[in-house]
Nucleic acid binder design. Structure first.
Lengths: 231, 231
DNA sequence: CGGTAGGTTGATCGCCTTCAAATCGTGTGG
DNA sequence: CCACACGATTTGAAGGCGATCAACCTACCG
């Protein structure tokens, strides 16, 4: 029996309709860990020893090219599994995961994956759906990269982040973890210079308000309009 | 019992280590169909009624953006499943599939998916791996799009196509189905003009030889060098 | 309070798109 | 069998978007 209480995870959508017994099966063999901001959880190409679930915080996932250029893959929100290499039959992490902010995660040894999927088939189903959605999102990303302008891509990333990792503060929606121009550049395929120029421009038009590693959206409608194709 | 003989599929890598009995389970409920060049197999956003396996030929998969711009996703080779929407829990096709050349496919009703996965768990495992590899390939594509020049991206696509869909003809490797500049442009995020210019340039350097909807690589090493990061 | 990581802003350059027009290949109907 | 039509390709010219190079500024941290 696990030393982690099932109520810790019961409310996340992935586990909806799971019985207490099933939750306990899931938590069996799980360890909880705290990662302070900036700490690396796993590194690209390293042998995959564990898989993870984010309880609290935010994780930044990045990939590095053979030429050494870094690109941002995505941000993990609480309630998401990550590093599930066993699911797709690989034995090394395909990317690097870093705590974007102090975070608490659950982790299981990789060897636990197949037994768990067998014991809780419901979870295996979920995993497939998760993979499927990821694949779709990745395709959307490609479409954006090939058909949209820098400005549109940045607008889209910001909308996505505000939707999935945003917090309402008065009139504004602010992104709940520190994110730099460089980070946005790596996610949108731009240089930080371009990102800075565009954000400055938006700031002058009162669409966003941003500071050092902080971004807050003041005019969501305007941003949505920018993300849409127009001139 | 199916009217399709199991030897038709036995030699494809996906089915390696499958028993005759398992193969017959797979073929149960399968229909084989012939699609002439240019014919649409399924269309993006249409309700997913079937899933498919390519026996012979080549299938082009494309996506269309909300703004109406078309992009090329990939080419299916014989031995691959496609349109497996059930696997990722969606009920509409996420892209359009067209016969790039006269093709022969197997097709099953979507409703057959879950029973089959249950009857042949070995196949479910394979499907996960396939999805995983697809996800990885898609990420590679993103990396290429964000970090490489037009020339490098085109070189990479050509290398990929020659590897997976190439035929050795004397000194040259030619791509075994008709593919236009426009097609390559849609796969690499370029205009057909850029593709044409680059191919013309390569032709003058004796790296490729190409005609109307036909491409043949005459100097593989040179192409590999171009795909690599250089100046 | 100094050092440093993050951010801004200007100037220039080049790749690729866009616009335009000509040419080539292929299949088809008279 | 030839002429024609249309799709595919080539090539030129111009222009722009975003990268690159460069310098400076500013907020936070120890």
């Amino acid at each position: 029996m696990s030393n982690i209480n099932h109520t810790l995870i019961a409310d996340f959508p992935v586990f909806e309709s799971f019985s207490t017994q099933e939750l306990n099966l899931v938590l069996n063999n799980a360890k909880s860990l705290r990662y302070p901001i900036g700490e690396i959880i796993f590194e690209q190409s390293a042998p995959a020893h564990s898989y993870f679930f984010l309880l609290h915080g935010h994780i930044r996932v990045t990939k590095i090219t053979p030429e050494g250029k870094q690109i941002g893959v995505r941000y993990i929100n609480p309630g998401e599994f990550f590093g599930i290499t066993e699911a797709i039959g690989i034995d090394r992490y395909p990317a690097t995961a870093t705590a974007a902010i102090d975070s608490i995660i659950l982790c299981w040894p990789s060897s636990n994956w197949h037994p768990l999927m067998k014991d809780v088939p419901k979870l295996a189903d979920k995993m497939l759906k998760i993979l499927g959605r990821k694949l779709q999102q990745t395709h959307t990303r490609i479409i954006e990269l090939t058909t949209q302008s820098s400005e549109q891509r940045i607008a889209n990333v910001l909308l996505d982040l505000s939707q999935n990792s945003g917090r309402q503060v008065g009139e504004n929606t602010e992104i709940t973890f520190p994110i730099s121009r460089q980070d946005i550049a790596e996610m949108t395929g731009n240089t930080l210079h371009t990102v800075s120029r565009i954000l400055s421009n938006w700031e002058s038009r009162s669409i966003v308000k941003s500071g050092r590693k902080r971004i807050s959206i003041t005019n969501l409608e305007a941003l949505k309009a920018l993300a849409q194709k127009n001139t």
